[in-house]
Design a binder for these strands. Sequence first.
RNA 1: GCGGUCGUGGCGAAGUGGCUAACGCAUCGGAUUGUGGCUCCGACAUUCGAGGGUUCAAUUCCCUUCGAUCGCCCCA
Length: 419
Amino acid sequence: MSIQKPKGTQDLLPGEIEKWQYIESKARELCLRFNYREIRTPIFEHTELFKRGVGETTDIVEKEMYTFLDKGDRSISLRPEGTAGVVRSYVENKLYGEPDISKLYYIGPMFRYEQPQAGRYRQFHQFGIEAFGSVDPGLDAEVIALGFTFYKELGLKDVTVEINSVGNPAVREVYREHVQRFFAPVKDQLCKDCQSRYDRNPMRILDCKIDQKYCEGAPTILEHLDEECSAHFQAVQDHLQAMDIPFRINPRLVRGLDYYTHTAFEYKAAGIGAIDTIGGGGRYNGLVGQVGGSDQPGVGLGLGIERILLVLQAQGIDIPAAKPLDVYVIGLGDAAEKECVRLLQSLRLAGLAAEKDYLGRKIKAKMKSADRYHATYVAILGDDELARGEITVKTMATGEQETLPLSSFVQTLQSRIRS
RNA sequence: GCGGUCGUGGCGAAGUGGCUAACGCAUCGGAUUGUGGCUCCGACAUUCGAGGGUUCAAUUCCCUUCGAUCGCCCCA
C-alpha cells in the first residue's frame, strides 16, 4: 500500500473545499461587521506556552499534544487550541499599549492526539475570536452574540446557547470543596470515571451520564458566586436579552480548559453522533498575566469548522455551489486549434472562466466534457469558420446555436456573461 | 489509552476453501466521419488493505499490522 494520510486528518478535495471557502468568507465578513481583525500566529509554539496557558493538568496538555524536540533541542508543540498563541502574540507585540481594546480573530488548524470519531479529528479547524483589554460584561455578550449570529447566518437550525459562570479562582476553590464534601459519602458508589474525577475535577461529576442519581441536590457554583461574580453574570444575561440572543443557564457547564473565569458558554446542536458541542468559549481574566504580560482581561470563543459542516449536512442545508464554467472552447483542425489557444487566453483576460480540451479527444467527447463542467456556452471553431472569420456558439441550456463574428466574439460573450 | 463494527475496480456493492471475482454507477470507444444530456453495442480488478501462517488449493480459515468508522475518557 502506498502512503496514506495520517490518522485523523483529511484531504479537502474540490467539491468539498467550496464549503470551507464559503464558511471562511462568511466568518471574515462577520468579523468585519463586529470590528474584529485577523491575526495569524504560528501553528507551533514552545510547549511551555500551552502548559502555562491551557493548564498543566488539563487533558489537552497531559495527553493530547503533538510535542517534539526540534534540532536545537527546544520542546515544540503543535497548537491544540487557538487562544494561547494569540495571547502570547498580544503580549509579545505589546498590543495592550494601543489606545483601543484588541479585538482579534483567527481561522486555522489545531492539533490534538486523540482517537478520531464522529466530529473529532487529530487535525481540525477552528474559527475563533479574542477580545483583550476590557472587563465589561457587554463584551462577553458581544462574543457570544458573534458566534450565535455566525451559526444563524450559515443556516444552522436549533443551535442552543448555554451559559454559566465559573466565578474566579477563589470562588472555584471554595465550591470545589463543597462538591467534594457532597459526594464524599457516595464516593465508592460512583462510576470508575467519576472516582478519578473526584480528585481531578469534581465539578465534572455533575455532568456524568451514569451517576445522575447521585447528583440530585448537589451544590451549584451559581450559589457560591461572590457579589462581583454574580453582578457580572447578571449583566451578561441582560446584554444577551437586549440583543435577543436566546440562552439557557446551565450551572453544570464546565469547560476543559483551566483559564476561564466568570463567563463560560457553549453552543450545542444535534446531528454529530454522540457529540453535541459545536463551539464554546469564555472569559479569561488571569491568562494574559500567566503568559507573562501585564494582567489584561480577555474573552473569546472557538468554533469547530468540521462540526459546523457535519450539522449542516445532517440538517440537509446546502451551501452555495461553485461557479460553473462560462465558456468551453473547441477547435477543429490545426489552424483552428491554434486560434483557440489565443481565444482561450483572451477570454480569460476578459474575466471569463474558460477551458479547452487537452486530451486530444473527438468533438463528441469534448462536448461531454463541456457538459460535465456545466459550461454556459460552447464555442466551436473549425477551419472553415476560421476562414470566414466566424465562430459557432452553442448555448448549452437550450441547445441553440448561432454564428458570431470572430473579431467581436470575446467582447460579445463578456457582455452576455456580465449581464 | 480502551472497546464494537468494517476493509473486494475511480465510486457503490455481491460472493465463495478450488472452475473466466456477479451486478450497478462513472469512465473510454463505437452506432452518430463537426456537436452534450436519452437509447443500444463493446472495453474496463493477473486481483479481493498490508504482512505472515494453515492447506494440494485462501478474496474466503487463523495470527499480526495498518486504515476507516462508531463509542468511552475528553473535547471543536
